[in-house]
Design a protein around this nucleic acid. Structure first.
Lengths: 191, 191
DNA sequence: TCCCGGTTATGACGACCGTCATAGTCTACC
DNA sequence: GGTAGACTATGACGGTCGTCATAACCGGGA
């Protein structure tokens, strides 16, 4: 909070706004105001314009989640999964179901011009999947099965976050959490 | 194809554009052009403006999918699941990973003014879940477990569709398909 | 034949968009 | 203390947005 670096503040603020409104409903002016930075600064720090800003925001949000996921996975796949789900639940509920996932937002909206942001989103998804896959493999799960469970987890979490937003309820995330934990437990038990 | 009713044409076209661009990147002008209808007609048939148009498009797309899902589920839960996944795979690949899900698009973007479209999205999700839940319950699955598996399925499919768009690859949907089928099969086998 | 409802056609409105140019301010080093 | 360079401030640009008012059109009942 109150980071002194304006650039960092802009990126973090952008990630926060993308969560709530999506890409096209977020203007650069609002972005600057939200970060208490002048509009001119925006184009000073991000000469690539909105595209660059969105791309960096996606990477930033992806990194934050990945760092958390990596740490929690060190206690085991099930513990990591639980923490991942709880983390998303916190974001969704604390914002009164206004906030979602900026990575998902970029993935759903147009690649109108330049796919930089979309590519960044794809990389974030892949990174999350890799963390989950590695953890599963380290606990004896086969390659294919680990890949599939990791992708299922990321997809289900992202989908559930969007569903929570639409329904203004945390139930989708809760249901998915129970079922995903069962899947991972069974996978670790070797079928 | 080539329906004579302009109103229907506009709604179907809107659903198609929402898939590809999302809500805010789709203008009413483009919508009218895409449906070969005059801009004035748009506000004649949809006095509620863009909000009403988006809402009806979401309901329309939701109905099409629900009808398909209901029919395929009559052959059993696994068969319905398979068809559901294959249907989405077709949409994603046939469009060269440009098209996604309009319901998801609405769920991820603004609640800015009037939640009509968001509510419609929530109803569509609930409808899809109900179809899956009912099918599972008719095959002896308990209530809670059926609810959880149904939500997991819808969430995972929606998330995977977005991931396919970002990665420009059908692999997320394919991985999710394999794992979801395993989940449903095991659920039906009673643990 | 006339007219009248539903539909299309056209153009305008105020607002906001992304982007940039330019000029002012500040900071830190020589 | 002066000056270079990083940052801020301001305002403008061409465009497009959602929305609406209004006029032209057109088919069919009186």
């Amino acid at each position: 909070m109150g980071s002194t670096e304006p650039r960092q503040r802009i990126v973090a603020g952008a990630a926060d706004m993308l969560r709530r409104r999506g890409v096209h409903a977020t203007s650069v002016r609002e972005l600057a105001k939200h970060a208490k930075a002048p509009l001119g600064s925006t184009y000073h720090y991000f000469p690539g314009g909105k595209q660059q800003l969105v791309t960096e925001a996606v990477r930033f949000a992806g990194d934050v989640a990945a760092r958390m996921l990596a740490e929690e996975l060190s206690a085991g796949p099930v513990e990591g999964l639980r923490a991942f789900l709880a983390w998303w639940r916190g974001i969704v509920t604390r914002s009164d179901f206004m906030a979602g996932c900026p990575v998902l937002a970029v993935s759903v909206e147009e690649p109108s011009e330049g796919m930089a942001a979309l590519d960044a989103a794809a990389e974030v998804f892949t990174r999350w999947e890799s963390l989950l896959t590695d953890s599963l493999r380290q606990h004896g799960v086969g390659e294919q099965e680990a890949d599939q469970v990791a992708t299922l987890t990321v997809a289900a979490v992202e989908g559930a976050v969007a569903m929570c937003r639409a329904k203004r309820s945390a139930e989708p995330l809760d249901r998915v959490a129970v079922r995903l934990e069962a899947v991972v437990t069974q996978t670790l038990a070797g079928r």
